[in-house]
């Protein structure tokens, strides 16, 4: 990958999360702290996944095995951060300026921690690829195609967005004791992760199209969960 490709891929994967960070997170220190805390929890889940993968020696070669458990660990840690954030609500009330908004609207905490999860997982999945790729070459000499980098970036973006939406749905479902929504989040995470296994056959369209379909579907769910509706959408567009 060349420098041009490097910037192309970075913009594609981290442009949208960067925009979300700038406009919705950066102005409030408490949100930044929560974002970082969430990323830390995702990292812990990564550590646990890798330890588990490391310990179960006979299945080391099986990507699917590590992947399934990694998804489960991530969801467990999403639950843990939910628990902690709910416990910390009172404390947060004291230190934040616009406590009314942050505490009253529970979706904001969900959104911020989801974005934290997403950004760190996106960074970890793409950084290895991008770091190796500074140089004059592109993929395709021994294996892969030249579309490898751009599809990797697109997949990373997809996971960043999905983590954000999943957290919104997941937190809300836990608040309301809606077990079906929790199961839906876990199973869609599993489904999406398993879909990426198809990448080894280098039919990237077979992965990317379903992935983005799921992103759009999840986004609509999260939108509804957060209090949006078609009517409110129409109203917001009209106001312009």
């Amino acid at each position: 990958m060349t420098v041009v490709e490097f910037f192309g891929c970075t913009f594609l994967a981290f442009g949208p999360p960067f925009a979300m960070f700038i406009f919705t997170i950066a102005h409030d220190p408490v949100r930044i702290i929560i974002l970082i805390a969430a990323s830390f929890f995702w990292l812990l889940s990564l550590l646990l996944s890798s330890l588990w993968w490391f310990m179960v020696i006979p299945l080391k070669g099986q990507l699917a095995f590590g992947l399934v458990f990694s998804v489960l660990f991530q969801e467990v840690f999403r639950y843990l951060i939910y628990k902690i954030l709910r416990k910390a609500e009172n404390g947060l009330k004291r230190i934040t300026d616009d406590s009314t908004q942050l505490i009253e609207n529970k979706h904001i905490l969900a959104y911020v921690s989801g974005l934290g999860f997403g950004i760190i997982s996106g960074a970890f999945s793409l950084v290895n690829v991008v770091a190796d790729a500074v140089g004059p070459a592109t993929m395709g000499l021994k294996s892969g195609t030249e579309m490898f980098f751009i599809t990797s970036a697109a997949t990373s973006l997809c996971f960043i967005l999905l983590h954000t939406f999943w957290s919104v749905i997941f937190f809300n479902a836990l608040d309301n004791g809606n077990k079906i929504q929790v199961a839906a989040v876990v199973s869609s995470h599993l489904l999406v992760s398993l879909l990426t296994l198809l990448n080894r056959y280098q039919i990237y369209s077979a992965t990317l199209i379903p992935l983005y379909a799921i992103v759009i579907f999840t986004m609509m769910c999260a939108f509804r969960v957060a209090g949006g509706s078609f009517a409110s959408f129409k109203a917001s567009v009209k106001l312009q």
Binding site: V4, G8, L12, F18, P136, A137, T138, I150
Partner: peptide, 30 residues
């Protein structure tokens, strides 16, 4: 070392997609 050098067209394609996504997302999020 031997490698596959990307064509200029492919490079332009990548940077275009990246930049457009970035700018669109800025507008949308705002």
């Amino acid at each position: 070392r031997m490698f596959l050098k990307p064509s200029a067209a492919h490079e332009r394609f990548t940077i275009a997609i990246g930049s457009v996504t970035f700018i669109m997302s800025l507008i949308l999020v705002y």
